[in-house]
Simulated scan of single mutants.
Amino acid sequence: MILRALFIALLLLPAAPARAADICNETSFIVEVALGWVTESSEIAVEGWTRVRPGECVESGPTFDPESDRPLLFYARSTAAYLGGVREWGGQLDLCVGASDFAVEGVSDCESLGLDRRGFDILRGDHRLRTVLVEPADYGDDAQEAGTQRLLRDAGFDIRTIDGLEGRRTFRAISAFVQAEGLPSTPPRAELIDALEAAAIRRNADAGLVICNETEGRIAVALGRQRNEEWESRGWWRLDAGGCARLLAEHLDEANAWFYAERTGDTPGRLQGGTESFCYSPSRFVAEGRTECAGRGYGTGLFRIIPDPVDGTSRIALTINDFRVLERTAPVEPQE
């Protein structure tokens, strides 16, 4: 989910000598920040990543003359420690970023260099000097405690509410964690957060539902599951030959989701072995409910249940044998 500029609070400072940007993190996530700017040669330079813990402020990026009109381009993402996928803060300007630390200038073809595209926000004037990342819960001064709670929960400890308030449950979870990790009983909070992040990454980096394409062509994959007592299907994740996608980024305890796939290109085909009907659409979709698909403008596909998870992960490798070849490319309803 992209938390766009609506959730980026920009605090204005008085005019001052040239200085870099202050980036303050009032969310419950450890974030990594990439910044871009226009160089003297009129190219756009982008650098990342600057790591900012919950409740911290850091100085990053180029220095700016407050009187200049050169914008600062801003994008941030949560680290890989968290269940539920990466959270993003940014805007509508697509720029290139690397998976790890990077610096690029004047790049327009991101894919050819193995870079990804992400949407940056454009900050102008005094807005460049201080940027505060927030989330809907608006933790403010309690961000560090909320961030500790979130990491404890995602590392597998008993935290029921992320509220930023100190309590017995949080204290007990911290005590259990430091004892399990052999840490001092009262480590500095920054060290505690770093250790919790490492533990959460070990637990969650590969957790969830991962589907890989071991055919020789491209496939498209959709997911069906029950969320908050409501059935839902969504797609598509498009995978080239040899590619993988994580459809669910959470620690799975049981096989409680279903998947569907189609081969695209010159030899279209549909997944075999499906047992449960879900709605789907030829283009990107999110469909609520599993009934009356046709009346709501959807097709109906037979989805296959995922394998039982091992250590929180259910992994699927699709081969040509998983697909039934279609003799026509127009959508057809699967036979019961």
Rank of each mutant, 00 (worst) to 15 (best):
residue 237 W to F: 15
residue 180 A to D: 15
residue 249 A to W: 12
residue 221 V to R: 04
residue 234 R to S: 11
residue 251 H to I: 15
residue 230 E to W: 02
residue 200 A to E: 06
residue 251 H to T: 14
residue 241 A to C: 06
residue 222 A to E: 02
residue 181 E to S: 10
residue 218 R to Y: 03
residue 221 V to I: 14
residue 208 G to V: 05
residue 186 T to N: 13
residue 195 A to G: 09
residue 167 G to D: 15
residue 173 A to H: 04
residue 235 G to M: 03
residue 190 A to M: 06
residue 206 D to A: 03
residue 254 E to Y: 00
residue 169 R to S: 15
residue 171 F to T: 15
residue 198 A to M: 07
residue 237 W to E: 13
residue 208 G to W: 02
residue 193 I to W: 08
residue 182 G to S: 11
residue 222 A to D: 03
residue 219 I to P: 06
residue 218 R to E: 02
residue 242 G to Y: 05
residue 204 N to S: 02
residue 253 D to C: 05
residue 200 A to V: 10
residue 170 T to R: 13
residue 263 R to I: 05
residue 219 I to M: 06
residue 189 R to L: 11
residue 233 S to K: 00
residue 214 E to N: 06
residue 239 L to T: 05
residue 209 L to D: 03
residue 229 E to H: 08
residue 178 V to I: 14
residue 184 P to C: 09
residue 185 S to E: 15
residue 257 A to I: 08
residue 233 S to G: 04
residue 207 A to D: 09
residue 230 E to C: 02
residue 179 Q to F: 00
residue 251 H to A: 08
residue 252 L to C: 14
residue 211 I to N: 00
residue 192 L to E: 01
residue 224 G to S: 04
residue 238 R to V: 15
residue 243 G to F: 11
residue 222 A to V: 09
residue 264 T to I: 13
residue 178 V to S: 10
residue 181 E to Y: 00
residue 213 N to P: 05
residue 221 V to S: 05
residue 253 D to P: 06
residue 226 Q to A: 10
residue 173 A to I: 11
residue 181 E to C: 00
residue 219 I to V: 13
residue 192 L to Q: 01
residue 198 A to W: 06
residue 240 D to Y: 10
residue 176 A to K: 07
residue 231 W to L: 10
residue 259 F to D: 00
residue 197 E to W: 10
residue 230 E to M: 10
residue 232 E to T: 14
residue 214 E to S: 11
residue 213 N to C: 03
residue 218 R to W: 08
residue 243 G to T: 09
residue 213 N to R: 01
residue 236 W to Y: 08
residue 256 N to Y: 02
residue 215 T to I: 12
residue 261 A to F: 11
residue 257 A to N: 07
residue 216 E to I: 13
residue 187 P to D: 07
residue 264 T to Y: 01
residue 172 R to S: 12
residue 167 G to K: 07
residue 172 R to E: 15
residue 169 R to N: 14
residue 177 F to D: 11
residue 173 A to R: 03
residue 219 I to K: 03
residue 246 R to D: 09
residue 173 A to F: 06
residue 242 G to E: 01
residue 220 A to I: 07
residue 254 E to L: 07
residue 181 E to A: 13
residue 202 R to E: 14
residue 217 G to W: 00
residue 229 E to C: 03
residue 172 R to T: 13
residue 253 D to Y: 11
residue 183 L to E: 08
residue 261 A to K: 06
